[in-house]
Design a binder for these strands. Structure first.
Lengths: 159, 159
DNA sequence: GCTGAAAATTATGCATT
DNA sequence: AATGCATAATTTTCAGC
């Protein structure tokens, strides 16, 4: 990947879009002292290159999904893909990653209350063939999420 | 929270914005068979209520940050806030959450190679007063992130 | 809370450097 | 890759329902 390199102008534009993805190119241009067309070209290039995407993040807490838990699973190798598909089909699953071993999966789930979480741990997960719950941890508070991540400013260099 | 409730129209608009946060209100209106003004009003309401935010997500892999690790920490209680501030100031830290115990923190970090991760585990983290590394796990692949999360459709009801 | 119409702003296509 | 210009599309403002 990384076919194109981006400079500090791109970095500033990304920061503006991070604050508000719908900010008009004209407004960004005024703020950064650039030409509107330049800003639009840059945004198009960034998005088309796949370096960033402009999206909408729903706040789980606003909708009452205040319970977050990390669950660690062991998965029978032969049924791995079926398990992954089953898990991704569950709306409560907000994160799914492979662990280090080929058998390890970790997921993050969101629920409205502890009863839903208990039900999920006791009934929903065990009902998926090939899944074994190794453990879980409640996550009381999240202070930063991946969507806030940016490469360090040094990555954006003048050519 | 949850002062307002949203309906299926809001749900559809959120899905459109998820695909492209810069999609024009006019285009969304055409696609969903709504009035442009209605779409803009809905978007404003959603964002002002804090139910969702329109933002830009940078792809770590594009910038070469291909190493992801989850690190589990134990933190001396008296220095908790200082530790959190120190961790949040580190760009590599893409996720930070409290664990179940008052002393537990878990973080996710992004690096370009294993050497940077080793350096972080061996030198950077131990240099923060009050931090003890309990363990870590490499995350080979992430299949879903929180930014893709949506409440189940049933949450969006007609009034 | 939805919609209409005019005015202001912004985006697009094409062309030039 | 950046920008100027003309045209098209969109958003905003102010209103009524």
């Amino acid at each position: 990947m990384q076919r194109y390199s981006f400079d500090t102008v791109d970095y500033q534009i990304l920061q503006e879009l991070k604050a508000d993805a719908r900010k008009s190119a004209a407004e960004i241009a005024r703020k950064l002292g650039l030409n509107e067309r330049t800003v639009r070209n840059r945004i198009d290039r960034i998005v088309e290159a796949g370096a960033a995407r402009l999206t909408c993040i729903v706040d789980p807490a606003y909708f009452g999904y205040v319970i977050t838990a990390d669950i660690f699973l062991e998965v029978d190798y032969e049924q791995e893909q079926a398990v992954i598909n089953a898990l991704l089909a569950i709306p409560a699953v907000s994160y799914l990653a492979f662990g280090q071993g080929t058998q390890d999966l970790s997921i993050e789930v969101r629920f409205k209350n502890n009863e839903q979480l208990r039900e999920f741990l006791r009934s929903v997960l065990p009902a998926i063939p090939g899944v074994h719950v190794k453990g879980y941890a409640l996550v009381p508070r999240i202070l930063r999420n991946i969507d806030e991540w940016m490469p360090p400013a040094e990555e954006f260099i003048e050519e």
